[in-house]
């Protein structure tokens, strides 16, 4: 068996990081997720804080694309994404943004994001679907690895 994180048991809580500079939207997302399932949520307003707490081993990270441009020294979404992938490439990262531009979406995907969701009415539903997909994918990968080992 590989050393992958064994946190995909159905009875455990799912650890979720929410990173967004807009405090109002962040809180709204937190409320949504808390209402809709057994999540263990940690919220951070900047990319640096998220990196600092990466040791908590989240199962999913939801990252805003436009992170705090007022303070120009902070990392923006893409930089944070790169750093997360450098430290732990197995954590799936979903990018959020208000902009529905295809080039931004493609750039996110190329940097290794799991998916790109636009902040809209359907955003929450899409995020939940994504999380479901992530776990199914993990399950399939685990099975595959198990069989590969057997070979």
């Amino acid at each position: 068996m590989t050393n992958e994180n064994k946190t995909s048991l159905p009875t455990g809580k799912i650890k979720l990081f929410l990173v967004d500079d807009d405090a109002v939207y962040l809180k709204l997302m937190e409320i949504e997720f808390l209402r809709h399932g057994d999540f263990d949520i940690e919220t951070y307003p900047t990319g640096e804080l998220c990196m600092a707490n990466l040791s908590h081993n989240p199962d999913v990270i939801i990252l805003d694309y436009y992170l705090d441009d007022i303070n120009k020294n902070a990392m923006n979404g893409i930089e944070t994404l790169d750093k997360i992938k450098a430290v732990n490439p197995t954590i799936p990262v979903v990018m959020l943004s208000q902009q529905d531009k295809i080039d931004i979406a493609i750039s996110c995907m190329h940097h290794g994001a799991f998916d790109y969701v636009v902040k809209s009415e359907t955003a929450f539903i899409r995020l939940k679907k994504n999380i479901n997909r992530i776990f199914e994918f993990n399950k399939i990968e685990k099975q595959l690895n198990w069989y590969m080992e057997r070979m």
Partner: peptide, 17 residues
Amino acid sequence: WKSLQATVHKMIPSFSI
């Protein structure tokens, strides 16, 4: 302009919320 753009960007979601 950069700062204006970033500020306004931040304010957009709260209108509909």
